[in-house]
Computed example of a mutant assay.
Amino acid sequence: MVEGLGVWPPVGGVAVDVGGVYERLAGVGLEYGPVFRGVRAAWRRGDEVFAEVALAEEQRAEAGRFGLHPALLDAALHTAALGGDDSEQDSSRPGPGLPFVWSGVSLYATGADTLRVRLAPAGPEAVSLLVADTTGAPVASVASLVTRTVSPEQLRAARNVTHDALFHTTWRAVPTQVEAPTTTGQWALLGTGAQYVADVGQGGPASPAAYPELADLIQAMNDGMVTPDTVSVSFTADSGARVGDPAEAREMAHRALR
């Protein structure tokens, strides 16, 4: 049970009207769509802010996919806009504070779709965050979240900049036939596919020396058996590997680095 969140509404808390919280945030440049409008109720007790936040009905089935659903975590931070006196909401701050530095973050449970939240000051431009489920059991905590103030003008200007930051893996087909180098002079083949290349290679000696491991090539060079002008390195996946298997790609990359 999280201290201060086991009894709900919080003891000594003064209810806050949350009806206009998202209109207020939009007024300073932070506009949220329906998925992120999760603040349901709030209370103030001195410098502390308590709130109940919940996912929209359409997103609740997704809660189990996350440690803490990002829309729910974001809604928990929206309650910072409810701090202070009503008379100071828009006049005393140059702009909204955006999350900047997270410290002491812990996750205790997963899959919550409704949260009890407590925010409290944790230093200049910083708050601490306690999060519990509807029974008061701990879900997450943040010892310190430092925010950085941005102006409404900066936020509006950012809307006009297009960022494609959604990265994903794209597999590119490569030829299955490995071609030997056409460099003239003495050359050696190294790697798990070396013998295959030696059998079909063209543009070099008819039977270039093949070495399965780097240590074998080094030993041959130390013994004066070979001093290649060119070393061709080949990597072949295990015969049972699935085409495009990310694990196999990582193994090949690690082998190349070694």
Rank of each mutant, 00 (worst) to 15 (best):
M1F: 04
V2T: 13
V2W: 01
G4Q: 07
P9H: 10
G12W: 13
D17S: 09
D17K: 06
V21G: 02
R24N: 06
A26P: 02
G33E: 05
F36S: 10
R45E: 14
A51H: 04
A51R: 02
A54D: 06
A56E: 06
T79K: 07
A80S: 14
A80V: 15
L82H: 07
L82K: 06
D85K: 11
S91F: 00
S92L: 15
P96C: 11
P99E: 01
S103G: 12
V105Q: 08
L107C: 12
V117A: 06
V117D: 02
A120G: 13
P124R: 15
E125Q: 15
A126T: 12
A126L: 04
S128Y: 09
T134S: 15
A137I: 00
A140E: 01
S144P: 00
T147P: 00
T149D: 09
T149C: 15
Q154E: 15
R156V: 10
N160K: 13
T162W: 11
H163P: 00
L166V: 14
T169F: 07
E179T: 11
P181A: 13
G185R: 03
Q186R: 13
L190C: 02
L190A: 02
A194L: 06
G201K: 02
Q202F: 11
P205Y: 05
L217A: 08
I218Y: 10
V233A: 07
V233E: 01
S234A: 12
F235G: 03
P246I: 05
E248P: 00
R250N: 05
R250K: 03
E251W: 09
R255S: 12
A256C: 10
